[in-house]
Design a protein around this nucleic acid. Sequence first.
DNA 1: TAAACTAGTTACCTTTGCGTAACTATTTTG
DNA 2: CAAAATAGTTACGCAAAGGTAACTAGTTTA
Lengths: 103, 103
Amino acid sequence: MQRSMAILGTRWKPVIIYTLRDRKARFGQLDALIENISRKVLTSSLKELEEDGVILREEYRELPPRVEYSLTEKGKALIPIMCQLAKWNEAYYQEPVSTELIA
Amino acid sequence: MQRSMAILGTRWKPVIIYTLRDRKARFGQLDALIENISRKVLTSSLKELEEDGVILREEYRELPPRVEYSLTEKGKALIPIMCQLAKWNEAYYQEPVSTELIA
DNA sequence: TAAACTAGTTACCTTTGCGTAACTATTTTG
DNA sequence: CAAAATAGTTACGCAAAGGTAACTAGTTTA
């Protein structure tokens, strides 16, 4: 469990994986699809998830450049888990104790 | 998903929930069961998870004092998810890229 | 020639997460 | 009287996570 958390235990990485559950996506698409994430965190999270074998980065040497991100087999194995995590909140949602805004 | 991550998106909270999947536990037990966690992070994580309705804190006014932590219904709903997350690592384990030690 | 598009990078800063170690309060036990 | 046990708290500090804004490079389009 601790090793899983060493890979996934941040606010944004599970959101990125969840967003890639049913599509490949380009950098700019991820930036647009995921509300509130900054490009900087997106860049570094993608890089680390690639190093950890969860996502695949494919660079097409075209003009303008195109880079597509998708889940590896290891990453795809997380899809049902991420979906359950997303549903968990919907089922048990309560107003946050601290007034912390989340879009 | 972002709301789920606002509650769970840290390295230790999922580990705490996983540890409580099949038992109530006292503070000192959790401290002993979870390798490498510090008492300080344990304290603050337990407090926040209680505020978020995931765990229940029961204080028995005895001597010496006894406090038991367990999962609420909302927390119990996470048990299968946490178990799958733990298994995910075992199935897809590879040597970490960065030499980051995890017990 | 200037603007737009893509996929970032860079600099700078703030906040959160986490660690270590020492300390507290209360009562029982030796 | 001192030590042990329980459940923390407190002080201090470091590193990682995260945010904002400006900038880069190469090419296509107006």
